[in-house]
Design a protein around this nucleic acid. Sequence first.
DNA 1: GATGACATGTAATTCGTTACATGATTCC
DNA 2: GGAATCATGTAACGAATTACATGTCATC
Lengths: 182, 182
Amino acid sequence: MSIQYAILGFLSWKPLSGYDLKKLFAASTVMHWSGNSNQIYRALVELHQQGLVTCEVQPQQGLPARKEYHITAAGQAALRQWVMSAPEPPLLRNTFLVQLAWADQLTAAELDTLLASYEAEMDVHARMMREQAARQLDTPQRTPRERYLWQMINENWISFYETQLAWARAARQASIQEEKQP
Amino acid sequence: MSIQYAILGFLSWKPLSGYDLKKLFAASTVMHWSGNSNQIYRALVELHQQGLVTCEVQPQQGLPARKEYHITAAGQAALRQWVMSAPEPPLLRNTFLVQLAWADQLTAAELDTLLASYEAEMDVHARMMREQAARQLDTPQRTPRERYLWQMINENWISFYETQLAWARAARQASIQEEKQP
DNA sequence: GATGACATGTAATTCGTTACATGATTCC
DNA sequence: GGAATCATGTAACGAATTACATGTCATC
């Protein structure tokens, strides 16, 4: 559902083709979609049917026609409506926690290795996010308000990975303490 | 895939029926599955085919036969193997952040309402998690190690919601500051 | 008489992913 | 010659959810 609104959002910046959108999704780490053509092209057809976008076909020699989608007034209204709608809770699934749930059968060393590799992974992700935020790769600069909003989004992701990282470190420490007092 | 291992994990405690597992999944907030019969019964068939569980049918008068699944030695080995395997990164999708990405068109008041309702939601979740952890509803008490592991799992969830909560508060504050200096 | 627990399962639907198919042009 | 970019799309598959189907027994 919400990928349609994400597309409308991008189109509210400027007219784009399916191919453009695909690249935008693939590039942005914060939009969690993979940028696969299946979803995007189908979503565009649906948005067109609902009258939320119009399609401008630009024939090209040799290449398939470029279909440039423009957001309509109805589309802008629908986007605004959705943006204002009550937020749904974030959905988090961490298979690693399921692994941990039955890690009692591991040795202390094995458990520490496991936690260490999670820690390392979270560290990598946290760094990546911090770098990307610093470069502001996908931060539009239209208004100061918008810049601030995208910074907040980046910070949300950073804080997520940093929290995981801190948790992993604490878990390792606690695990060592546990071991000493059986 | 990993729901099979979660099932094996529960069965490593004691033999259970599909119905039992369904209730366990539905009750535990930390296992993110909804506890729907489709997945569970299919997973049990597959585990049985793989020889990781055995099935003991207990006929009952009036009621459909209760199929009690027992973990096998192969099942225990497979579980251990999986628990030790390299953790995959947690998967987080937060539609609210997508909403925020195009919240520039909202008034300051509307934006604050939006952030406030996210804040409230995260607060509720954080409280729920903290309560559940305090009551240790789904914390098995077999060994001190296992108790500690499940505490860590609970703390992971709590820290997630608390981080989101803190982020929402900071975002609201920053939003107010932004407004004063345009 | 209705609801809910017990207990099994199937069907339909949604969402998302990877891989495939086609075909020209440009760069190394 | 091979890879990457441009540009459209389809097919196959997997994971997960809700809703449906069936039937008994106990409780309110």
